[in-house]
Design a protein around this nucleic acid. Structure first.
Lengths: 231, 231
DNA sequence: CGTTTCTTTGATCTACTTCAAGGGGAGTGG
DNA sequence: CCACTCCCCTTGAAGTAGATCAAAGAAACG
């Protein structure tokens, strides 16, 4: 469990203190919120089991998905800037999260360089993940967006020791579409096309990647040429 | 100048130390890089004058713009996670930046709570800015993307005491398009449409917002209905 | 099991891309 | 100071990927 709450790079000296800090895992049922926009930011979370989505809801009530959090990943950073959460976080299935009170985290950061660095690193990763997503959204076509997304999930699964080639994606087609900037129908059709290309197998939410290199190729295709930069 | 290098919320006690830390402003000529992907991450930067773009270049040499940095804004965070910069940063015009060595920044953070919080805040703002951009890219149509972008720049200008209604945008149409996920032609056409709606005046790179509320309306329009969420 | 929600697939429509061509504006060199 | 060049921007015309509308099948859930 400590494993999932703040995995890499912590020197053993701080570990006991760190563990004392972690509030016992909290359960979040499928469909239930972990936090809402406007909630006071008090803690970071780490997903221990299950998965959650983050999103904003606009005036018209449209849900724009901004992220998917898998086991071992951090959650809640969106509150750091203003002290108030900017996003909604809702469980996609029955899940558990560790709670890391921010005040204690800050204190530990002042005591231990490694702890401070680890915290910065987590934030930095979050930033980089978001720019990467901007890149996906910025240019290419629907099919390659979906391919990028599947590769991303696969890779993140692998990072924590789960299967890279087979996983269950709890997002609906509509949620994926929202995340990828396309409609649910286009998600569905792209899924079918990838399946017919022999790159993946799909069984409802169960995804199996059968040709990861092929998928990488699709994800790299810049079908919107968009591209007279010529550098 | 201290003003632009780390403005809000620093208690006076740390200020002298902080100022000692800031390496004298560095000049970057129009078109010149501040850093490249792969460069070792050693410092954060704050734009003092001018403006810069950040971007990644993909295999095919396409430049995908990920951000625009105006005076008073932080730059370089993309290196925190891995110790190596992930993006390119290039000046759009003759600019100056302050250099804030990261190691010293960390140290100061350990000494002063305010300093630590300020650093976290800067990172948090960066994250939130990026999710906001994902939202722009995720759903609506070209015209509202452009409107959102202009409003964003306007608001950021206002935040630092510059004019909210009139500014010079050094990005080319192609760069804006890349940032917004549309082609340069569509940027141009959308610009024309906003002009004909009486919302902005355009003179090459000079932008004047004449009807900010109208612009807000356009930015909120969800023309791709995309939207059967019905929450 | 029946009801609701999600997914797939088809048919049409449209906004944006692509291709193309002309018109500045800024900088450079004569 | 003009002429030349290089970019960048604008606008037009045509093609297309993806949105929208629609309907039926498949899971999920109580």
């Amino acid at each position: 469990m400590r494993h999932l709450c703040m995995p890499h790079g912590l020197e053993s000296a701080v570990l006991p203190k760190f563990e004392a800090l972690v509030v016992a895992g909290r359960k979040v049922r499928a469909g239930e919120p972990l936090y809402f926009p406007g909630d006071r930011f008090q803690s970071l979370y780490a997903v221990r089991s299950g998965s959650l989505k983050t999103f904003v809801t606009n005036r018209e009530g449209r849900e724009q998905i901004t992220g998917l959090r898998l086991p071992g990943e951090a959650l809640g950073l969106d509150g750091i800037a203003s002290g108030v959460h900017a996003l909604s976080a809702v469980a996609l299935e029955d899940s558990t999260v560790c709670t890391l009170p921010y005040s204690a985290l800050k204190e530990l950061g002042r005591e231990s360089t490694a702890m401070q660095e680890r915290l910065h690193q987590v934030m930095g990763e979050q930033m980089n993940r978001e720019s990467a997503q901007m890149i996906v959204l910025g240019a290419p076509a629907a099919e390659s967006r979906l391919a990028s997304f599947l590769l991303d999930v696969s890779q993140r699964n692998g990072l924590r020791g789960y299967s890279q080639s087979e996983f269950r994606l709890r997002l609906t087609r509509e949620e994926m579409g929202s995340y990828l900037g396309i409609t649910l129908e286009t998600v569905s059709r792209s899924m079918t096309r990838l399946r017919k290309l022999g790159l993946i197998e799909v069984n409802a939410k169960e995804i199996r990647i059968t040709d990861i290199d092929g998928l990488r190729e699709v994800s790299a295709v810049v079908s919107r040429k968009h591209d007279r930069t010529g550098h």
